Amino acid sequence: MSEIEFGLDTFGGVTTDADGRSLPHPQVIRDLVDDAVVADQAGLDFFGIGEHHRPDFAVSSPEMVLSAVAAKTERIRLGSTVTVLSSDDPVRVFERFATLDAVSGGRAEIVAGRGSFIESFPLFGYDLQDYEVLFEEKLELLAALLKEEPVTWQGSTRAALTDQRVYPTTERGLRAWVGVGGSPDSVVRTARHGLGLFLAIIGGPAARFAPYVDLFERAQDQFGVERQPVAVHSPGLVAETDEKARALVHDGWVAMRTRMGQERGWPPPAVGDFEREIESGALYVGSPETVARKIAATLQVLKVDRFDFKYDQPVQHADHQRSIELYGEKVVPMVKDMIA
């Protein structure tokens, strides 16, 4: 990458109607396709969709939705954020994204990761006790498949391959990343396999991730691999004013944090947590000027090649689309001016 890219990604979170009722999954999925069209028209570089298998997220097959997006867009790159590799088959992952790459004219990317949730493990018959070995072995195989040469591989999590070719082939190869939440071991593993590093910054100041970017560079040098790009993503929403943006996001953010806390044993959000995450944490909520200043500050402390705005706050679809427009047409140009 010769300059910083600016993208969007979404977990396919269920949105609401004017009365606050959750929209059905089919409508949410159709809306995501429309969002990507707006992002393409706004000049953004990337649109990513995450894989989940639970009721509050609509997308379990990002590649299918991205194929629909490919048919309606012209230039924006398309990828998963993330593909839950631990509970998938690397051969099938490569085949699906190579197919997406073909129908999109070479715009497909893979972001492989462990995933934010564990529902896919029992759903597809995997034991959580194998959490580490599943990801390690499957990432190793995926990295080999990405070279598009005959693969010989053996492990404990799937059948071995001997001098095996996988199809379809691509025209220019697939760009691939590993989604990492902040584990040094994961950063080093990503460097060893020669893949891009995709850092999920969902809480706290961005500066605390600078050591991971430095570690990634050092590890690549030690492994003697070609330097790969680094991306970050953080959640947020852009509106015409700071007050409007905060009002739109506040209740849904508190409800989401409370729900996640109950599932994972976190304490409920305290008074002032929402405001602190906006002012000094990883929540990019506000007017175009406010969000642009915060993104520019992040890019000044982190040496990254792409910033992705995770825009799927639990609001109405019209608010999402307006946020995408403001991000592409106002925020990104301002950030480019600031960092220049």
Rank of each mutant, 00 (worst) to 15 (best):
D319K: 11
H193Y: 15
V187T: 15
T169C: 05
S156M: 09
P288G: 07
G79Q: 03
R306S: 07
A39Q: 03
G281C: 01
L8H: 06
F97T: 11
W266F: 14
G106I: 13
M64W: 05
E263Q: 11
H53N: 05
H250T: 12
D101V: 04
V37W: 04
Q164N: 09
A143I: 10
S120Q: 15
P122A: 06
T170Q: 07
H53Y: 04
F307K: 02
E226Y: 03
D89P: 02
G252N: 02
A270P: 04
P268A: 14
K310S: 11
L141H: 00
T241S: 15
G281P: 02
F94W: 01
L8T: 13
E329H: 12
A210P: 08
V285R: 01
G12P: 08
G286F: 12
F47P: 01
A282T: 08
A219P: 04
I339M: 00
M334C: 00
K303D: 15
L197W: 01
I4C: 09
L23H: 09
A191V: 03
I29H: 04
A176T: 15
V82M: 01
S86P: 04
R227C: 06
I339L: 06
L66M: 05
G272H: 07
A18C: 08
A159P: 03
G182W: 09
T170E: 09
G20W: 11
T241P: 05
V91M: 03
S287R: 05
S323Y: 02
G328M: 06
S280D: 14
T152F: 04
G115T: 08
E119K: 02
F97Y: 15
H193K: 12
A231N: 06
P122D: 00
M64R: 02
T258W: 10
P333I: 14
V335K: 00
R306Q: 14
A200K: 07
E289G: 08
V332P: 05
S287T: 00
A282E: 03
V151R: 08
S234F: 01
S22M: 08
I324P: 01
S87C: 14
R257W: 15
P314V: 07
T81D: 00
